[in-house]
Amino acid sequence: MKARALSLTIPLIAPALLAVIWVILARQIGNQVILPGIEQVADLLGHPTEDLISMGSLISNVLVSLVRVIMGYAIAALVAIPLGIVMGYYGFIFKFFNGFLNLFRPIPPLAWVPLVMAWFGISSLATVVGLETGQMYIYLNNIKFSMLFIIFIGAFYPILTSTIHGVRNINTTLIDSARVLGASEYQIFMKVLIPASMPSIITGMRIGLGIAWMCLVSAEMLPGSLSGIGYMITHAFTLASTDIVIAGMISIGVVGASMDMVFRRIEHKKFSWRRQAR
């Protein structure tokens, strides 16, 4: 019982220390813009549905950001996973794509911004659907192609790399076994390559989601962005509302960590066979 209490307490010590230092520093500095009090930020986080300086509420901005990330990320996963599987399995497809993809890999997602703006401007899902007014327009107009693209680039490479890695590390005996048991090429993909590389794919998806979430702020700083947690932070900064900046940063951290935890759970629960298998 005592050990359990201790193991639950240890992770809390560092954040508690940070809070104490924050309180002391805020009192010493005494300047809202440099470091607002902890109670102000806590108050903002405690009332997430309140409208903040006409930028919408904290929660609605977080939700808008989440929708963007999930869309860009889903597209990245839908492209990267099948591509990674065929690249991992067929040597010639790997050779065909690898050099080309490696050329783009070192380019930070942010460096794409000018080009992406030239391509997509401020066009959004609303542009495609042809809406120009109404509530639906407001929703769809939040999903800008430029943003999706930046998020896509961020998530694409980690997912691709770990999918290729996962497929290449499959024990060939498993593939041979499936062949001898009568599996068709399609069945080998669906029933051997995908499940066997799934643990590695999930790890890539976890890393990819983390990076996609990080790319979000830069994507939301793009012109035409009028919502989202990244927009909220940059806009609050121009208004010298440092408390909102910090509340926004904390929200980003909490959401990112929660998503990561979900993936870790899946890794742990579904793929215990990988840790022990051999």
């Binding site: 024990n171 005996t173 498993l174 041979d176 076994s177 499936a178 051997v192 499940p195 066997a196 799934m198 793929f271 066979w273 990988r274 298998a277 051999r278």
Partner: peptide, 8 residues
Amino acid sequence: QEYSLFPW
């Protein structure tokens, strides 16, 4: 010889 069962 070994490692032929599908671990999942």
